[in-house]
Each structure stands twice: as structure tokens, then as C-alpha cells.
Simulated assay, not measured.
Amino acid sequence: MIILWNSAGMTVELSLVDEQTGERHDYTWAAERNLARDMLAYLRDRLNEQGASFNSVSGIGVFRGPGSFTGLRIGMTVLNTLASDRGVPIVGAVSEAWASDCLARLACGETDEIVLPEYGRAARITKPRK
């Protein structure tokens, strides 16, 4: 099962692609401010709906941005960790066709090893007062 993930906005987009059948299952989730707390459970539940588990994941494709600083950072941290732990390839893309770009790269055996976000501008981080 291949995970395609986009957490650049307030609504997360997830696609699960079965490599054997080519079937693609698309989901959206209004994660709002609960992404960090609920992301793994959300992924687990969607995989279970397809008769899969984290052990079934064979590749991960991620939308790198631009988008929400926090959403991109949380999503990529979790997915980079999952890819490293499971020993599966992870790739990222930034175009409008990011999902098909990721699938093509995974099909060719590519991996980025670690996917870094592309915010589209400097992050707005509050400077320390002291």
C-alpha cells in the first residue's frame, strides 16, 4: 500500500494506492488543530478500512508545499519517521501533479530518504523577546 499525503492546508488529503490492483482510495480530513495528536490514528484507521496496516506500507509520497508551516512540518516529520522505521522509500513533490509525480518516482525505485517541506516563503515565527 502506498500512502500519498498532503497536509499543506486545514484539510488533509490522503490517498491509499494498492500496488497490486492499482485501486486508489481518496480521503479528506478536517484535521484543524488536531493533526499532531490524531495523525497516526487517522492513518491507522484508513489503512485498516482497506485491510492493511503500517506493515503493509511499501512507499510514501508527500506534497512538500507550499503551504502551512505547521501542517507541512508535522506531516513530514511523522511520515519521514514511518518511512525510516519501516524501511520504505519516501518521495516528495511540489507541483500540482504531485501525487502522480510521487507515484512515478516510487515506481522507478527512487527515494529522497528524508523529505523536507517547501514553505513558499520564510516561515513566520515569533522572535524571542529576550
Rank of each mutant, 00 (worst) to 15 (best):
G51Q: 02
Q20F: 00
A83G: 10
C102D: 03
A122G: 09
M76H: 08
G65N: 08
I3E: 07
T21K: 12
R105P: 05
L103I: 13
A41N: 14
L43D: 06
L116M: 04
W98C: 01
L14P: 15
I3C: 13
V115C: 03
R129V: 12
L106H: 10
E113G: 00
T126A: 13
N6D: 15
T126N: 08
Y27Q: 13
S84I: 01
S95F: 00
E32K: 15
D112V: 02
S58A: 07
G22P: 03
D112C: 03
I74V: 15
L16I: 13
V62N: 03
K130I: 05
D18I: 00
T77V: 07
L43Q: 08
T11G: 08
L40N: 10
C102Y: 09
R46L: 14
D18F: 00
Y42K: 15
L72M: 06
I90K: 05
F63Q: 01
C108N: 08
I60K: 06
T11Y: 15
P117T: 08
A36C: 15
T111V: 03
G109F: 04
V115W: 07
V17T: 12
I2V: 15
G67Y: 03
G71R: 07
G109R: 06
G51A: 00
N6L: 11
F69H: 07
L43S: 13
G71H: 09
V115Y: 11
G67E: 06
R105I: 03
P117M: 08
A52I: 02
I90H: 06
R129G: 10
G22Y: 02
I60M: 09
L43A: 12
A83L: 05
S84F: 05
V94E: 04
V88A: 07
L72E: 10
E113N: 05
M1L: 05
E19M: 09
Q20R: 01
A52P: 02
Q20C: 01
